[in-house]
Design a protein around this nucleic acid. Structure first.
Length: 307
DNA sequence: CAGGTC
DNA sequence: CCTGG
C-alpha cells in the first residue's frame, strides 16, 4: 500500500475538483471528496485537503507520477497572464483558477473522445465505465469498485454487437475501426506524439492515418488531453456559445453569424479559422484558454448543470 | 436534445 | 444517426 501526501503550497493554485469537472476526463468515479481511477495504469484514490493532495494506492506509484499526471509544476501563473486578454478571460481565470490540462494516456483519451461525441456528460461517463468494465480492468478500494485501463486490442478483436452493449450507439463502428487501426500500427501513437500540433491534427482527421469517427473537434480533444499539445483549441458547442465574449474584437463576427443569428455548426474551414484566431490571441496556451472558456460558458449558459 | 461525424 | 438523461 502506498500513501503519498503532496504539499500543494509548493505549486501554483491547484484544484482537484475543478480538474475532474473540466470535461477532459470521464473515467473516474467520484465519492464524496474522493476520486477513484487509474493513474499511469495504477488504480488510485485521490483527494484534496486545502494544501494537500492525498493519493492512496495498493500498487506502486511515485510522487513524480502524480506531479506529472496532474501537471502540478506547470507555470500556470505565466499562462494565466498570457491568456488574460480581456474582462471575460480575467473573470474566467479568477473563477476557475486551479485548473490543469491533465496528462492522460493517449490511447485511453482516443477511446474516451470517440465515445463522447454528441452525448451529455452523464451518458459519456456511463459509456466509458461500461467500456472499461468490458475491455479494461477492475479495481476495488475502500469498498468502492471502479474500472479503467480500457484495452484497445481487446476492443479491436471484439464484435460490433458486443461493443453496442455498452450503450455507445452509432459510435460503435467508429470505436471498432479506430481500435483496429491503432492496434495494427504499433507506432501510431508515437508518430502522433512526435508530430507538431497541426500535422498531428491533419494526420488524425485526413489521409492515411485518419481515424474513422474522429473529426476536428474530437481530434483536438485527443491532442490536448491525450498528447498535451497545448495549441489545440477544441471548439464544441460550449466554446461556440462563449466565443464571441472570449474573443471579442479579435475576429470578424460576421464569420460566426447567419442572418444575425450565431452559427451553431462550423465548416472545416471555419473551425480551423476560429482555432487559428484563438492560437493567435492565446499563443501556445490556447488549450488552457479553452478550459477556462468552457467552464465559464457552462456556468453562463448551462443552467443547473454548473457546479 | 446531448461536448460530432459520416 | 444510437441511446439515455
Amino acid at each position: 500500500m502506498t500513501l503519498i501526501y503532496i504539499d500543494l503550497k509548493r505549486y501554483f493554485s491547484f484544484d482537484l475538483k475543478k480538474c475532474m469537472h473540466s470535461g477532459q476526463i470521464f473515467g473516474w468515479k467520484n465519492f464524496g471528496k474522493k476520486w477513484y481511477g487509474f493513474l499511469n495504469k495504477v488504480p488510485v484514490c485521490v483527494s484534496q485537503e486545502e494544501n494537500k493532495l492525498i493519493v492512496v494506492s495498493n500498487k506502486s506509484i511515485t510522487e513524480d507520477d502524480i506531479i506529472y499526471f496532474f501537471n502540478l509544476d506547470e507555470d500556470v501563473d505565466k499562462i494565466n497572464k498570457k491568456i488574460d486578454v480581456n474582462d471575460f478571460m480575467e473573470k474566467a481565470i479568477e473563477l476557475y483558477c486551479g485548473i490543469r490540462v491533465l496528462r492522460q494516456d493517449p490511447v485511453e483519451t482516443i477511446i474516451e473522445f470517440v465515445c463522447a461525441q454528441n452525448k451529455n456528460i452523464p451518458a459519456i461517463q456511463k459509456t466509458i465505465t461500461e467500456i472499461s468494465k468490458r475491455y479494461g480492468e477492475k479495481a476495488e478500494m475502500n469498498g468502492i469498485t471502479f474500472y479503467g485501463k480500457p484495452n484497445i486490442r481487446k476492443i479491436a478483436k471484439s464484435k460490433l454487437s458486443e461493443i453496442l452493449e455498452t450503450g455507445i450507439g452509432y459510435r460503435a463502428k467508429y470505436l471498432l475501426s479506430t481500435a483496429e487501426k491503432i492496434s495494427e500500427d504499433s507506432t501510431y501513437v508515437d508518430k502522433i506524439r512526435s508530430m507538431e500540433y497541426f500535422s498531428a491534427l491533419n494526420a488524425m482527421t485526413s489521409g492515411k492515418m485518419k481515424l474513422y469517427g474522429v473529426g476536428l473537434k474530437v481530434a483536438d480533444c485527443i491532442l490536448l488531453y491525450g498528447f498535451y499539445k497545448l495549441e489545440a483549441f477544441p471548439i464544441d458547442v460550449w466554446i461556440l456559445r462563449a466565443y464571441h465574449y472570449a474573443l471579442k474584437g479579435f475576429y470578424d463576427e460576421n464569420l460566426l453569424s447567419v442572418n444575425g443569428f450565431r452559427k451553431t455548426k462550423l465548416s472545416r474551414k471555419e473551425y480551423l479559422l476560429m482555432g487559428d484566431v484563438a492560437r493567435k490571441v492565446f499563443g501556445k496556451y490556447a488549450g488552457y484558454a479553452q478550459l477556462y472558456i468552457y467552464l465559464a460558458s457552462r456556468s453562463l449558459f448551462g443552467g443547473s448543470k454548473k457546479f
